[in-house]
């Protein structure tokens, strides 16, 4: 079983990304669970979302305390939340940032986590491909690449089908989102 914890702020789409990841895993025949944990209901408040992906049925309904992967959608949360809590040393953390990877890695090391650290500039990718800041597509691609539970081409095919369904009334945004995924797969550091 792969367990993933997402840290974001209300309105950034961390919950949507977690649910999309569960959908992708489900479509390739895995058992999957995706769920949010809500704090105060307002834009900008910290929210946590979770994914479980497994080859066997999933019954557990508690939150995830020892994740394999952590995705930080909003790096300002690193200061206020213990984002690496329980994160497995052979797992990894992915941070959305415009800073140098070395700087972020040093910050994570200071928190006492010595596993793999990846960074991605989801803002740049999103603005370049969609013209607006929607970090969830790039972050989704990043976690797929790092966790490796699905072949990248199969992932892209499935996402294209999902976007066609999801954006049936806004087909013009499909290609932008697909390009955001492809760019994120290339630009993950």
């Amino acid at each position: 079983m792969i367990e993933i914890r997402w840290h974001g702020r209300g309105g950034q789409g961390a919950k949507t990304a977690a649910l999309l990841l569960a959908e992708v895993a489900f479509k390739i025949g895995k058992n999957a669970q995706g769920f949010p944990e809500y704090g105060p209901e307002r834009m900008g408040a910290p929210i946590t979302a979770y994914d479980r992906i497994s080859d066997t049925p999933i019954r557990v309904h508690s939150n995830i305390y020892d994740p394999d992967y952590v995705v930080v959608v909003d790096e300002s949360l690193i200061e206020s939340i213990d984002v690496t809590a329980g994160l497995k040393e052979d797992g990894a953390i992915i941070v959305n940032t415009q800073r140098d990877k070395a700087e972020v890695e040093a910050e994570i090391r200071q928190k006492g986590y010595f596993g793999r650290v990846y960074t991605i500039d989801a803002r740049h990718i999103s603005i370049h491909t969609l013209g607006r800041y929607f970090p969830n597509s790039p972050m989704l691609a990043a976690v797929v690449k790092v966790s490796g539970f699905i072949d990248e081409d199969v992932f892209l095919e499935n996402m294209e089908a999902s976007y066609k369904h999801k954006f049936a009334k806004k087909p013009e945004v499909i290609e932008g989102n697909m390009e955001a995924l492809r760019m994120a797969l290339r630009e993950l550091k």
């Binding site: 999957a32 669970q33 995706g34 769920f35 809500y38 049925p57 309904h61």
Partner: peptide, 12 residues
């Protein structure tokens, strides 16, 4: 059913 735990969680 249980609020959020099942209501807002996607499952197979």
């Amino acid at each position: 059913q249980d609020g959020f735990i099942t209501s807002h969680a996607v499952m197979d």
